[in-house]
Amino acid sequence: MSSIKSLMQPHRIVLMALFAAFVLWCALSLRWDWIPKYAPLALEGLWTTIWILVVTTVLGFFLAIPLGLAQAIGPWYLSAPARVFCTVIRGTPLLLQIWLLYYGLGSLFPQFPWIRSSELWPYLRQAWPYAVLALTLSYAGYEGEVMRGAFSGVAKGQLEAAKSFGMPRVTMFRRIWLPQAIRNVLPTLGGETILQLKATPLVATITVVEIYAVSSRVRSDTFIVYEPLLLLALAYMVIAGLIGLAFKRFENQVPGRR
């Protein structure tokens, strides 16, 4: 109720009226006749965006756990490579990483003819494995750094208590350390996932047909520039909003520390 009340302030009503007028103006004076023709393609693109986002965040997160752990408590021969990996991923543009993976690896294929007769070749020919790999590594790089802090942030007393109960190390990690570290990173996860969503359009540059690529297709087919871009921005805003809401609910269900 209070949220509705807060919307009923006079200046907000004026703003909303202005916004409605803007939407109406967009609907009436811009060109939207291309939508029916491209709607199926756009839905496919949306689906591609979403599955790439989900797969890469999940895989990236699982990769981030050992990366964070190695940096937090690992011996130097584990922590040093993990730190270098995170620094390199975070220090170079994702676009460059994607191009290096896709075109760099692609340039090696002709030198090794056996690749083309291997079982993997049908996948190596596609663009999405490279997209998934690049985005997964990127997410792991950023989240690994966060996980390092999360692992170090777990109160030492709890670990000592577990040890004094004679809990085996693996159980201790699984039951106490990992759940608490994950709870520590929960507030950042939503934000990181939205950042990952915002990174997905880059894979369009290696021929993956996700929602951004569909908008480019509309632009190149019909020469309509602004309308597909505006709709695309709206689509991303909606997805980002849904991610934010989902994580907020998820966070509320997990008992907090405060």
Binding site: K198, T200, P201, L202, Y212, L229, Y236, M237
Partner: peptide
């Protein structure tokens, strides 16, 4: 909320 790439295109052309 909007990807930088999309913002760049919008701001660049529009």
């Amino acid at each position: 909320a909007v990807p930088e790439l999309v913002l760049i295109l919008i701001l660049y052309y529009v």
